[in-house]
């Protein structure tokens, strides 16, 4: 047969947060597991395991995905941005800064997903309406904040960007 059928561990190469990475994953591993357990990027959280909470969101080849619903082997030659790739502790991006200043987080476990998802939205549409923001984030569950202060943080970021 012309096509190789992979079992056992597969070498996967991808660009993660701008850095080339190669690691081994079994075909059954999700991208979420690979990011967390193979690459140590534990900012990616597992909340539901079936695409309903958004805590595992990353941007993959320019598009928001739930990594619990992607196999690690599917990430071959992809470009991925996780929350760890957004900003650094001494170089926060405005969105991160505004989540802090607007108290847009409480327990913080959904926060990476919200940040990544919002970044994906704003990169595509720098000036979304409230309805567009809420629709875009409907797949990101937050149980602590009631979403209000998350929306405030996002709207403040938009206001700062559009007035600059």
């Amino acid at each position: 047969m012309a096509v190789q059928i992979a079992s056992g561990k597969v070498a996967i190469s991808a660009t993660i947060n701008g850095e080339p990475q190669t690691w081994l994953s079994e075909p059954r591993e999700t991208l979420l597991e690979a990011l967390r357990d193979r690459l140590g990027l534990t900012g990616c959280k597992e909340g539901c395991s079936n695409g309903n909470c958004g805590a595992c969101n990353v941007v993959m080849d320019g598009r928001l995905v739930n990594t619990c619903c992607v196999l690690a082997v599917e990430a071959q030659e992809s470009e991925i941005t996780t929350v760890e790739g957004l900003g650094t502790p001494d170089g926060l991006i405005p969105l991160q800064k505004n989540f802090l200043e607007e108290a847009g987080l409480q327990c913080g476990v959904c926060t990476p997903g919200f940040l990544v998802a919002t970044k994906a939205l704003l990169d595509k549409n720098p000036n979304p309406t409230d309805d567009e923001i809420r629709w875009w984030l409907a797949g990101n569950l937050c149980r602590c904040t009631g979403y209000d202060k998350i929306l405030n943080a996002i709207k403040k970021t938009i206001a700062e960007t559009t007035t600059e």
Partner: peptide
């Protein structure tokens, strides 16, 4: 699904 699901 959500926008993350719609990405795939």
């Amino acid at each position: 699904g959500g926008t993350g699901i719609q990405g795939r």
